[in-house]
Design a binder for these strands. Structure first.
Lengths: 344, 344
DNA sequence: TGTCCGTTTGGAAACGGTTCACTACTATAT
DNA sequence: ATATAGTAGTGAACCGTTTCCAAACGGACA
């Protein structure tokens, strides 16, 4: 039961090592009969090819590198989890690295991955403005935070935002505010555009234009709370009846703000988030949100890297449609436009 | 600028490949002069040794495997992030895998890691009762969820729980309830024991024993909310004035329950959580909690695996002390024991 | 001066696979 | 029947290191 090598298998099966190698790699020119015999021996001996020896010659590592800014962000955590699952399904393993949103660390990680000769790299770029230095010759794909000069895959943030706001408008809301993401962030800008797309043509019950109202805030919980407090701190008649937040964390913070102001949900205020992180379905009230198809996004990224799907061109990233999950944080406004009219 | 190998370096430096290898590995028997010359050439050529060729011969991969049940659990996400940082500081990279809390998947992942010839494995075992099949000869260490027949490193849950409950008792609380973790979970049992350790000798202002009160619940948010609702649904005079939750997620859920019942925090109820996840410091009120020294825990796990720290013996795991972070969710009870007495 | 010993270096084997040029054999076309 | 093409399988070279053994060298000691 010593260490078994390919030549033990070859010997036991009565074939040459080259043949065993071809069986291992599903090379076509092996008789079904021989293939079966070899496989039997492999199984019998519990033989496992040494990945290092294998990679050394073939230049294929079956390793994917993934670099994200911060794993404590639940959205990225979900991404990593999905990517690992997808890679696993394609027979690959994942080397995980965190860049801590620091450009220097990011560059270092990238260099390490290149040195490891991974088959591809998935990266959520750090927020610093610099262009990432991709080791050339190595497939690299950006996810979520798209970069102009690299292929990327992401949710269609703009369309997703439209769905959210259309839903709120369809419910009868007209004073719909938006907690936008940090300016400068591509996903944030896209979501804001989606919001504006819907708001611009919108008319109230008297046919008057409605004013878009948005405030920029970081994607996190606390910023969402602050933004929510700001938006809701106005007389009831002017106060938004619905808020579209650019992230679930913001939405949850905003929800908290509403709570603190004594605004009942969803009667007094509807809130819709974005991302679909697990927590969004655990809080009370359960958050209506736009869920990003993370498994599909991750799978597309992996498939592209492995050449099993065409790599998206530089200008046009691979976009995935989001889905609206209607839950408990949204409802029709208590005072419908008609009612408001009547009460004058 | 073609691919550079060790022999290009050797040639350019006028030495044998073996010598270059020795320089690379800091082998002592190389003259300072030769070493310097070789290093200069290495730098000049931008040479990077191929990790595969290196690993094949030396049997050292500089790779650490980490297997956790579920990355969407923020506690595990933090663990992974810390472990990656620690591994990185030791010149290692991390292969991340998720077991989805499934014993079969877990076994498969472990086998894959063994096949990859990682230098060590960090695992948070799935909750299934089975013993994990560790590839023998491969250093493996369990974290958080300790297993009897494997070395482990974790926070001292019992002592941490004691600190939390002592803190509440010191504040003057006597009706202190506990949301225990799921029975069967080692960390949960330990935390409950810590709670009981403090409660048993506790006496109220009249010198009477106080009754421990606890309810088992899963570690997640929703379970915490349910448990909180249960504990708080009793007449004010009997209602706990403080609750020690076994996880931050439970605590946050419980906080929500208190909110729904109109109990003001921290005036009407003090809540202390456990874990110190990032979210605990973002919510309102900021959660008083027991923070696990995750960086230290992760570093200990990595160091043990790499033999740079003695591996903890099977029976006695490596325990780390937690720290109490006093924040906004806890305060003295409004009616102190003396006051209650006086008002009779 | 010669011997012995320790240190530094050179050269080649080894690691465990993949790949490639080539042979042996079969089936098909001429 | 013979040339031809195609397929299965062989065996050795090769990938880029580490490691081992022996050789070269230099100093200490007799």
């Amino acid at each position: 039961m010593a260490k078994r090598g390919i030549k033990d298998v070859a010997e036991r099966a009565g074939v040459a090592v080259g043949t065993v190698s071809r069986v291992l790699n599903d090379h076509p020119s092996v008789t079904a009969e021989v293939r079966a015999r070899v496989k039997a021996v492999i199984h019998e001996l519990g033989y496992r090819p040494d990945p290092f020896a294998r990679s050394m010659r073939s230049k294929v590592s079956r390793l994917i590198g993934i670099v994200i800014p911060d794993l404590t962000n639940p959205f990225f955590a979900e991404l990593v989890q999905c990517a690992e699952r997808a890679a696993s399904e394609h027979g690959h393993n994942v080397i995980f690295m965190s860049s801590f949103d620091d450009a220097a660390k990011e560059a270092d990680r990238l260099a390490q991955l290149a040195g490891r000769k991974v088959d591809g790299i998935i990266i959520v770029p750090s927020n610093s403005p610099h262009a990432i230095k991709a080791p050339k010759g190595l497939p690299l794909i950006t996810v979520d935070r798209l970069l102009p000069d690299h292929p990327g895959v992401a949710a269609d943030h703009r369309a997703g935002a439209r769905v959210a706001v259309e839903y709120l408008a369809g419910l009868g809301h007209r004073r719909i505010a938006c907690i936008a993401g940090p300016s400068g962030s591509r996903p944030a800008e896209d979501r804001l555009q989606g919001y504006l797309d819907v708001m611009r043509p919108l008319r109230d019950h008297r046919g008057a234009k409605v004013e878009p109202l948005f405030v920029n805030a970081a994607f996190d919980y606390e910023s969402g709370r602050a933004a929510g407090t700001f938006l809701l701190a106005r007389p009831r008649a002017e106060r938004p009846t619905a808020i579209f937040a650019s992230s679930d964390q913001q939405a949850i913070g905003c929800l908290r703000a509403a709570n603190d102001l004594g605004i009942p949900l969803p009667a007094g205020l509807s809130i819709v988030g974005f991302d679909g992180i697990p927590l969004s379905n655990l809080i009370t009230p359960r958050l209506t949100t736009i869920v990003q198809p993370m498994p599909e996004i991750a799978d597309a990224a992996i498939s592209s890297l492995l050449g099993r799907r065409k790599m998206p061109p530089l200008g046009k990233p691979d976009l995935f449609q989001c889905e609206l999950a209607v839950r408990e944080s949204s409802a029709e406004p208590v005072l419908e436009p008609a009612a408001i009219n009547a009460s004058r």
